[in-house]
Amino acid sequence: MSDTRQAARYTEYHPRWYRPRVSTWWWLGRWPYLKFILREISSVFVAWFVVVLLQQIRALSRGPEAYAAFERWLQNPLIVLLNLITLFFVVFHAITWFNVAASAMAIRFHGKRVPDLLIVGTNYAAWAAISLVVAWFLVRS
């Protein structure tokens, strides 16, 4: 943040130099760029999930009728479609997050670096275990 701000403030008084204009759509050209932007956009869907969750909590707090209305709202085809897209993005977020976990936390054990595959594998195993625990609490027929 501060770097970009400083730079922006600095360039205001800097003589004009040659800087080719980068298109707003620069990220559409190549798959790695597009992947970067898709990963960043996943945050919007994380926020959408929080909105749905808070609606659920509010409906639960208001009583059975309010909750039945909330459940009907979830069955609206547009909401289902939006949630399907959201699922794609949150899974994309999870996969990209776990895959860089090895680079983000270089763990050493007895002076040797723990292999990347082990760290990433542990993350995926924890993901599966946590998902099962959450499902165990929520799936009650």
Partner: peptide, 15 residues
């Protein structure tokens, strides 16, 4: 937090 728990929450609640 989002990576670990949101996919399963969303899959169950939203779909």
């Amino acid at each position: 937090m989002a990576a670990f728990v949101i996919p399963v929450h969303l899959f169950l609640l939203g779909l």
